[in-house]
Design a protein around this nucleic acid. Structure first.
Lengths: 219, 219
DNA sequence: GTCTATATCGCGATAGAC
DNA sequence: GTCTATCGCGATATAGAC
């Protein structure tokens, strides 16, 4: 029922008069509206998951009619795909914000920490891995695939360097490392631990990072 | 469309004549039918997940009418709950089949191996953790809760003993260990690795066990 | 208990006026 | 592009004969 627009609109701030300004203003409105939609979808995906999220809820949350949603996105699957594109873009922005001279293992831990915090903040969308129509839409989304490939390349680079400098086990295939890190984005241990009420969010993050990199076995 | 009955029926094998035998036979028929239903549900839950599994499919798979299903189980949620009760019972049977004198860490690894193999065999039902009606049904199912508590107690005992004998890290809360082990039952890494086609099922099992207990960090 | 046939309904998607 | 109102479909669940 609430309309969230981010970043806040600056109406015709430093724009020259005439048609170009008007077009840009319209484009800003459109982009802001679509961004509000995608943010609502992202939150609902994190809260209820794809199957339980209804398009009616999304429309009500954004504050527009359901038919208007379908003018922006042709299907529910495309709504979810847009949310995933946004998350991948956020991940990419986070990765590029990391110090380039840090040790590769620390980069990987920072990524996992970021994903766990996103999950704890209720902003990590959860999709079913078995919905074929959703998979088809995602696999046909060039923006999503490109973004996913770019961050995977970056992470893969860190994995190889971490294995070379001896901080990461060389007996684990790099692909397995990548998948293991990605899986932390939907690790049910996070919500289980939170439901237990025994640990703060920060403790949960550090505990899960510990089990991920150090394992359960005693050193 | 196929009716699977297990174990195979032995019709009136060593039964005395009279009413008791007849009642027992009927009860066997009923139990066998319900077991066939639960097995079909288990396979469909593993294949498509709860949301994508339809009651029509279950009925068609067992070879009976949908209305007949509802004579055995009052709702789709109860169907899934029955499958979970079965899996928990299988897990308990597996745990009691383990050698009692083995080291506790090996017991835990054996459990994870069993869960991973069940997943690779397509027999690990996958439920959404966010479906509230399903959660309600499960939390009201005494057989499920009792079975889950019994195996959790057994596992918790091994965890404490493994921490005492120095094979498991004492800096990890036992509850986190338990959750981390349980999470291997729905670890998406398994299907990702299988989809990559780079490893055999046995290799996948050992690789995931390795990342779970030894972590990614080099020793 | 099993069947056929049907009730009921939630949800994705659309028509058509403005 | 946005709205109100509605369609169409599939899914859970049930009625009633046998």
């Amino acid at each position: 029922m609430s309309i969230t627009i981010s970043p806040p609109l600056k109406i015709k701030a430093a724009e020259p008069a005439g048609r170009p300004a008007k077009v840009s203003f319209k484009a800003q409105m459109l982009a802001a509206r679509e961004d509000a939609i995608v943010q609502a979808v992202n939150r609902l995906l994190a809260e209820k998951g794809f199957d339980l999220m209804t398009v009616d809820e999304v429309a009500a949350d954004v504050g527009i009619a359901k038919a208007s949603l379908y003018k922006h996105f042709p299907s529910k699957e495309d709504l979810a795909a847009a949310a995933m594109v946004r998350v991948v873009a956020l991940a990419q922005a986070f990765l590029t914000s990391l110090p380039v001279d840090a040790q590769p293992l620390q980069q990987l831990k920072s990524l996992v920490r970021w994903m766990l915090e996103l999950q704890l903040a209720g902003e990590m969308p959860s999709l079913p891995h078995q919905n074929s129509s959703l998979r088809t839409t995602l696999m046909n989304n060039k923006a999503y695939l490109d973004g996913l490939m770019r961050i995977s390349d970056q992470i893969g680079d860190w994995i190889e360097r971490a294995q070379k400098d001896g901080s990461l086990s060389v007996s684990i295939p790099p692909l397995l490392v990548l998948y293991t890190l990605y899986s932390r984005a939907c690790d049910p241990v996070v919500e289980f631990l939170r439901a237990s009420g025994l640990h703060s969010d920060d403790e949960i993050v550090e505990l899960v990072i510990g089990t991920c990199f150090d394992g359960l076995h005693a050193r």
